[in-house]
Amino acid sequence: MNITEIIAFGSLLVSLLAFIYAFLTNSKRYELTSQYRREVLDWFSETTLILSTLRKVIYDKDGKEDKYKLLCKLSAQIEVGRFFFPNIDKGDGFGKEKPLAYQGYRNLVLDFLVYSHRLFKKEDAVRYRDHAKILQRYFTSYVFEIIEPKKFIKETKKHTKKTFNQELSFEDFISREPEIIEMYIRD
């Protein structure tokens, strides 16, 4: 083997190792992102269930104990949420006297929950049901923005070659399958 062949072989080996390294680190990054995303969605799911149940319970005259338990659960979800959405440090020293997790400004995602908690805690919480629903929609929208489902679907397709999104609306479905809708209208 002459020097040119050795250099060519070495270059090929380095290129192959670089490709393998890039693939493995990309796969690991995807795996870690997926795990984090799953944990946030589990937390989000539990929190949303609590909020939805609170909107129902406030109509129940005998539901004070249920309301209290749900408010405790919501408070716990806010505390857990601090690990996903830590306070914001604007560099102005705000809250420096507080314990570490509470220093700075509360993340907006958690503020929607804190204000929902305050509304549901009121004796006349039923008056604020629509307000709480709006706060929940913003909560969902900001988590949606952070989770980036469309980007995640693209990444999943890239790594698994599977598509989970057909980009099909209900209106599109009706135009393709009108007899299905007719069948339900007749019943």
Rank of each mutant, 00 (worst) to 15 (best):
N2K: 14
I3P: 01
I3N: 04
I3Y: 10
T4E: 11
I6R: 12
A8D: 09
A8V: 04
F9Q: 14
F9T: 10
F9G: 03
S11P: 02
L13H: 01
L13V: 15
L16I: 04
L16C: 04
L16M: 04
A18Y: 04
I20T: 08
I20S: 02
Y21F: 11
A22S: 09
A22M: 12
T25S: 11
N26C: 07
S27N: 11
S27T: 06
S27A: 12
R29C: 02
R29I: 02
Y30V: 12
E31C: 03
S34L: 10
Q35D: 14
R37I: 03
R38T: 12
E39Q: 15
E39K: 10
V40H: 03
L41A: 05
W43N: 07
W43A: 01
F44T: 01
T48K: 12
L49I: 09
S52N: 07
L54Y: 01
R55Q: 03
I58N: 00
Y59C: 11
Y59K: 08
G63Q: 05
G63N: 12
D66V: 03
D66M: 08
K69M: 07
K69C: 13
L70M: 01
L70I: 00
L70K: 00
L71P: 02
C72T: 09
C72H: 14
S75K: 02
G81K: 01
R82S: 14
R82A: 15
F83M: 13
F84Y: 15
P86V: 04
I88T: 11
K90Y: 10
K90C: 13
K90S: 02
K90E: 05
D92N: 12
D92A: 10
G93M: 08
P99A: 13
P99F: 06
A101M: 14
A101V: 13
Y102E: 07
Q103D: 01
G104V: 09
G104A: 06
Y105A: 08
N107F: 00
L108D: 06
L108E: 06
L110H: 00
L110G: 00
Y115C: 08
Y115N: 11
Y115I: 09
S116A: 08
H117G: 04
R118L: 15
L119Q: 02
K121R: 08
K122A: 06
V126P: 00
V126M: 05
R127A: 11
R127I: 15
D130K: 07
H131T: 04
A132D: 02
I134M: 02
L135H: 01
R137K: 06
Y138W: 05
F139V: 02
S141V: 04
S141K: 15
Y142W: 07
Y142L: 15
V143R: 01
V143P: 01
V143L: 03
F144E: 14
F144Y: 15
I147D: 09
I147M: 12
P149G: 06
K151A: 15
K151D: 05
F152D: 05
F152T: 02
I153G: 13
I153L: 08
K154I: 15
K154C: 05
E155Y: 14
E155K: 12
T156D: 13
K158L: 09
K162Q: 14
T163L: 11
F164N: 06
F164L: 07
E167Y: 06
S169A: 03
D172I: 13
F173W: 14
F173P: 07
F173E: 08
F173C: 08
P178C: 09
I181Y: 09
E182Y: 12
M183A: 15
R186N: 07
